[in-house]
Deep mutational scan, measured.
Amino acid sequence: GLPEGWEMRFTVDGIPYFVDHNRRTTTYIDPRTG
């Protein structure tokens, strides 16, 4: 799974992105792969 505090969501286009609730940021880069 994802690191603690992270969540995976999808855009309206079906593109996955990642929400970091710890820092309240979003990124398209998987936190597991950097």
Rank of each mutant, 00 (worst) to 15 (best):
G1F: 09
I29P: 03
F18K: 00
L2P: 04
L2N: 03
G1Q: 14
G5K: 06
P31A: 00
Y28N: 07
M8N: 02
D20H: 08
L2H: 02
W6F: 07
R24L: 13
D30K: 00
P31Y: 03
D20Y: 05
R32A: 08
P31W: 00
G1K: 14
I15R: 13
G14V: 00
T33W: 13
V19F: 13
T33H: 12
T27F: 05
G1R: 13
T33P: 13
N22Q: 14
V12A: 14
R24G: 15
G1P: 15
H21S: 08
I15W: 11
Y28P: 08
T26P: 04
M8W: 02
H21W: 11
P31T: 01
R32V: 06
R24Y: 13
M8V: 09
L2I: 05
F10H: 11
T26A: 12
E7Q: 08
T27M: 02
I15K: 09
H21I: 11
H21G: 04
I29Y: 09
T11V: 02
H21L: 08
D13F: 09
R24T: 12
G1W: 12
T26N: 07
V19E: 06
Y17S: 01
P16V: 10
R24P: 07
F10T: 09
T33E: 13
G34E: 11
W6Y: 07
H21V: 09
T11Q: 07
R9D: 07
D20N: 05
N22H: 12
G14Q: 06
D30F: 01
G14F: 06
F18H: 01
P16Q: 09
G14N: 09
I29H: 12
R9N: 06
G5N: 09
P31D: 03
D30G: 00
N22E: 13
N22M: 09
D20E: 04
G14R: 07
P3Y: 04
L2D: 01
T27Y: 08
W6I: 06
G14P: 00
N22W: 07
T27H: 08
P31I: 03
Y17P: 01
E4L: 13
M8A: 09
Y28I: 06
G34N: 12
G34L: 15
Y28Q: 09
P16W: 06
T25E: 15
V19N: 01
N22A: 11
E4M: 10
R32H: 06
V19P: 01
G14S: 06
E4V: 12
T26V: 14
N22R: 05
R23F: 11
G5A: 07
T27I: 04
T11S: 09
P3G: 05
G1Y: 10
E7H: 05
E7W: 02
T11L: 03
G14A: 05
D30W: 01
D30N: 00
F18R: 00
T11H: 05
F10L: 09
I15G: 02
H21K: 09
F10Y: 13
R23Y: 10
F18G: 01
H21N: 09
T25D: 08
P31R: 00
L2K: 03
H21T: 11
V12G: 10
E4T: 12
T26E: 14
P16R: 12
D20A: 01
T25A: 10
Y17I: 10
M8F: 04
E4K: 10
T27A: 03
F10V: 08
T27P: 02
R9E: 06
I15A: 08
F10W: 14
D20L: 05
P31F: 03
